[in-house]
Design a protein around this nucleic acid. Structure first.
Lengths: 227, 227
DNA sequence: TCCACGATATAAATCATACTCATCGCATCA
DNA sequence: TGATGCGATGAGTATGATTTATATCGTGGA
């Protein structure tokens, strides 16, 4: 489902927004400062951003400007939220590249409608190349893995192995099957190779390493929390 | 230049719209009835439509609905213009597929801004040929690259390579993919050519050169600062 | 001057070996 | 019947040799 980031320092408002969006089937994450927002943005690009113009640490218009310069976020749909209902504010916001704006106070229905409309426009089901299991996030575009938000350096084989396990989270995968998929069908010789890589993976994943469970006599499985 | 169709039966309003849009460099065509509009639409699809909700012969919401069903006009940007400022009208219009709306009376500046914003969104008139990643600015019009404001002299291949990496900042790009794109699909023979250019790029970019990261076994990626 | 290529150097990842540890089934014994 | 111990098998770990990928350099052609 679509993830919507809400950047808003007024909790009363962010709660209304978050609540109503969740009710409509969206996932939400609330940030009270631009700093927090950037931090998470680096890890995962949302489907849409609701951005307040007035923030404690940075001006909303300035944020939009920056986001539009970065290819990563250039096309990210942004709805600006402003309390100042003057025309010039709107103009500035739109010209910098916000896709739409909302003026406080706004009705919940209007919020939902605009979000829907904008998602439909940009929507086209932005292919999600990210997988998250527990505290582990795998971003295939960046070829990077994050545990609790911190990047985790993996070698290629380790990465492939983890990716396979994550894509099949909750399903036991046989040793031979793993070898076939990650090492190639022609892999020869029985050795401790797979075990070795499992080991280093567990090690590098740290606390989250325990998610990789051994199923004796069969293979491995990545727990997805649901028992 | 972009052609904008104005569908509006009130001449006072259509004239204001037409005049201000022309002043801003757009071509316009005014239609007083849905019938006229359809007729011309069959001949030429405009870049954008300003559509009044209340028309003598057909309801504006209904028109949008029809336009969205026709593949020809499905993605044509539409701004609904309505005198009825109630929330439900907005909701209906947006949910049916209008991209934006204006409530009468509206300011000329707001009209222009919304048109601009919508055109930008729909991909027209994107003139922003500059990309900035970290301290590196690439200006495609000048064919120049600046690091920390100071110009950085690059050869053509180096420039092309950097441009590709910057446009795909934050996404790993495979070696073959880079070779295909920068050197051409027919590039033969595995040699150290790509590495060479990466090296000189890193060197010339100086401090910012470290933004180009090697992803072993895969290719290269330009970090976009957000860790 | 820029670029491609090949030779060589450097760095890193991968794998095989040898070993240790854990688990399970089974037989024996109380 | 249940507890205990033993051995077999499967899995985990450490290490260093080997393989592979990338970086760098020098040469010569366009």
């Amino acid at each position: 489902m679509s993830m919507i980031y809400i950047v808003e320092d007024d909790r009363n408002i962010s709660e209304i927004e978050s609540f109503s969006l969740r009710n409509s089937g969206y996932e939400t994450a609330v940030f009270e400062t631009a700093g927090d927002f950037y931090e998470t943005l680096a890890v995962k690009i949302p489907s849409l951003v609701l951005l307040d113009v007035m923030l404690p640490d940075e001006d909303g218009l300035h944020i939009v400007e920056k986001l539009r310069k970065d290819p990563q976020t250039q096309k990210m749909p942004i709805i600006m939220v402003t309390a100042r209902g003057t025309e010039m504010d709107k103009v500035k916001g739109l010209d910098l590249g916000a896709d739409d704006y909302l003026t406080k106070p706004f009705g919940v229905m209007e919020l939902i409608s605009r979000v829907k409309a904008l998602l439909r426009r940009s929507g086209e089901a932005r292919e999600d190349r990210q997988v998250t299991i527990g505290d582990v996030l795998l971003d295939d575009e960046r070829h990077a893995v994050y545990v609790d938000g911190a990047q985790c350096e993996l070698t290629h084989k380790e990465y492939e192995l983890l990716k396979m396990l994550m894509l099949r989270a909750g399903i036991v995968t046989g040793r031979t099957e793993i070898l076939d998929q990650v090492w190639g069908t022609d892999f020869q010789g029985e050795s401790r190779t797979l075990d070795m890589h499992i080991k280093t993976l567990r090690q590098k994943l740290g606390r989250a390493g325990s998610m990789i469970r051994t199923v004796r006599n069969v293979g491995y499985i990545l727990d997805n929390g649901m028992e």
